[in-house]
Amino acid sequence: MSKTRKLLALQFPARSENMGNVRQKLREVMASCSKSETMTNCIVLAVGEACMNIIQHAYGKEEQGDIILEVEKQGDNMTFRLTDFAHHKTRAEQLQSRPLDEIRPGGLGCHIINEIMDEVQLVECKNGCGNVLQMKKCLHRQTESN
C-alpha cells in the first residue's frame, strides 16, 4: 500500500473574500495530482461548496472563526478534510442532496459535493473543534459531468 502524503494544510478565516485564494492554492495542489483539468475543476468546486456551507451555516452571521483545509493523497485516492470551530454541530442529514426537480434558488451545494466526491462524511472531532467534514475522491473515478 502506498504511503499517505499530506499535500496541503491551510488555516484561514472563514470569510467569503478568502475563498479565491483558497481555491487558487487547492488548484495548484491538484495540478500536480490530477491528469484532467475537468477533475481539478470539479474538486475545487466541491471543496469550495463545503467551505461555503461552513461559512454560511456552521459559523453563520453570529460567529467568526477559522477553517483548516487538509489535503492528503494515497496512490490515486485523495482525502479533503475541513475542520471548523463553530458552536453549531452539523448533522449528517444536512449533507443530503435536495430533489433537483424543484427549480428554486439555493440548496444545490450538497448535491454538487455528493455528485463529485466518492465519499462525504462527518468524522469525529478530536480537539474539541466544531465539525470535521471528510471527503474522498479517487482520481480515476469520473463524475457525471466529466
Binding site: V44, L45, G48, M52, R104, P105, L108
Partner: peptide, 16 residues
C-alpha cells in the same frame, strides 16, 4: 472561469 451554487442560485432567481 468559476461559478458555484451561489452564482447558479442568482441565475435561477433571474430565470424565475
Amino acid at each position: 472561469s468559476y461559478i458555484d451554487s451561489s452564482g447558479i442560485a442568482s441565475l435561477v432567481e433571474g430565470y424565475q
